[in-house]
Amino acid sequence: LHIEINVNGLRIELHNVSEELAERIREILEKVDDREEARRLAEELIK
């Protein structure tokens, strides 16, 4: 499954994740104000 999410102008592509996991990642990242911090957090979440 390939999912693309957009959060605060940051486009993140997720591969091989469930829709539920992608939604949780999006919800978490929406709470982060700083774009660079959101990017770093996204990288950690999808490892």
Rank of each mutant, 00 (worst) to 15 (best):
E23W: 07
E13V: 15
R24L: 10
I12Q: 01
N6V: 12
R26F: 08
N16H: 11
N16G: 13
I5P: 00
E20R: 06
D33M: 14
I25K: 00
R39Q: 12
I25E: 00
E44Y: 03
E27S: 14
D33H: 13
H2C: 11
E36H: 10
D34W: 08
L14C: 03
R24I: 10
L21F: 15
E23I: 13
E23G: 13
D33Y: 14
R40D: 06
K31R: 12
L45D: 01
E36L: 08
E43M: 09
H15P: 02
V17F: 06
S18D: 08
R24P: 00
R39C: 13
R35H: 15
I12R: 00
D33G: 13
L10T: 15
I12M: 07
A42E: 01
D33I: 14
L45H: 05
E13N: 08
I12A: 01
E23M: 11
V7L: 06
V17P: 05
S18M: 03
L14F: 06
V32T: 13
E13W: 09
E44A: 11
H15S: 05
E13F: 11
V32P: 03
L29V: 08
A38R: 04
L14E: 01
L41T: 07
R40G: 05
D33F: 14
L41W: 06
I28N: 02
R40M: 09
N8W: 00
K47E: 11
L41N: 04
R39K: 13
N8V: 02
E30M: 13
K31E: 11
L10R: 10
L14H: 00
R11S: 14
E36V: 08
E4M: 03
R26W: 06
A22I: 14
L14Q: 00
I3D: 02
E4G: 02
I12V: 08
L41F: 06
A38D: 01
R39Y: 11
L21Q: 13
E27K: 12
K47W: 05
E44C: 10
E30R: 09
L10K: 15
A38C: 06
R35Y: 14
N16C: 07
E4Q: 09
N6T: 07
E4K: 03
A42P: 01
R40L: 10
L14P: 00
A42Y: 08
K47F: 08
R11N: 15
V17I: 10
R39D: 04
H15L: 08
I46H: 04
L21G: 04
V7M: 06
L41A: 08
G9T: 00
I3R: 04
E36P: 05
H15F: 07
H2S: 08
E44K: 07
I5H: 00
E27G: 12
K31H: 13
E36M: 07
A38M: 12
E36S: 07
A38S: 07
G9A: 00
E37G: 08
R24F: 06
E37L: 12
L14W: 02
V17E: 03
N16L: 07
A42M: 11
E44R: 05
L1Y: 02
E36W: 04
A22V: 15
K31N: 13
L45S: 03
D34R: 06
N6F: 03
E4V: 15
L21H: 08
N16I: 06
L1A: 11
L29G: 01
L14D: 01
K31P: 03
E27H: 13
R40Y: 04
D33N: 13
L29Q: 01
E23L: 10
E20C: 03
K31G: 13
I46K: 03
E23F: 07
E13S: 12
R26G: 03
D34M: 06
I3K: 03
L41E: 05
L14I: 07
I3M: 05
I3P: 02
H15A: 03
L21I: 13
I28K: 06
A22C: 06
L45N: 01
L1Q: 10
R24V: 12
E4D: 05
N8M: 00
R24H: 09
R11P: 13
A38P: 02
E13M: 15
S18T: 14
E37V: 11
E20H: 14
R11M: 15
R11I: 15
E36R: 06
R35M: 15
L10Y: 02
A22F: 09
N8K: 06
L29P: 00
E13P: 03
R35T: 13
I12K: 00
E37P: 03
E13C: 14
N6S: 02
E30N: 11
L10W: 02
E44W: 04
D34Y: 04
E30H: 10
L1W: 01
V17G: 11
S18V: 04
R11V: 15
D34V: 07
E20G: 10
L29F: 10
K47Y: 07
D34P: 04
N16A: 07
H2G: 04
K47R: 12
R39W: 13
V32Q: 11
E20V: 11
I46Y: 03
D34N: 12
E19D: 06
S18L: 04
H15N: 05
E23N: 14
I5C: 07
V32E: 08
R24Y: 11
I25L: 10
A42D: 01
N16E: 06
N8A: 09
R40V: 09
N6K: 03
I12S: 00
D34T: 09
I5V: 06
A42L: 14
K31V: 11
E4H: 09
L41V: 11
E44H: 11
L29K: 01
L45K: 02
G9K: 00
N16W: 08
D33R: 10
L1M: 13
L45R: 01
D33Q: 14
E43I: 08
D34G: 09
H2I: 15
A42F: 11
I46M: 10
D33A: 12
V32D: 04
L1N: 13
R26P: 00
E30K: 08
R40E: 07
E13H: 10
E30T: 12
E43K: 04
E27D: 13
E19C: 10
H15G: 03
I46E: 03
E37K: 11
I25P: 00
R35G: 13
V7E: 10
L29W: 02
E44F: 03
N6W: 01
I46C: 09
I28W: 07
E43H: 08
L45E: 07
A42W: 08
L45F: 09
K47M: 10
L14Y: 03
D34F: 06
R35W: 14
E36F: 05
R24S: 09
I5D: 02
E30D: 09
E4L: 06
N6G: 02
V32Y: 12
A38W: 02
A38K: 03
H2L: 09
E19V: 15
L14A: 06
N6D: 15
V32I: 13
L14N: 00
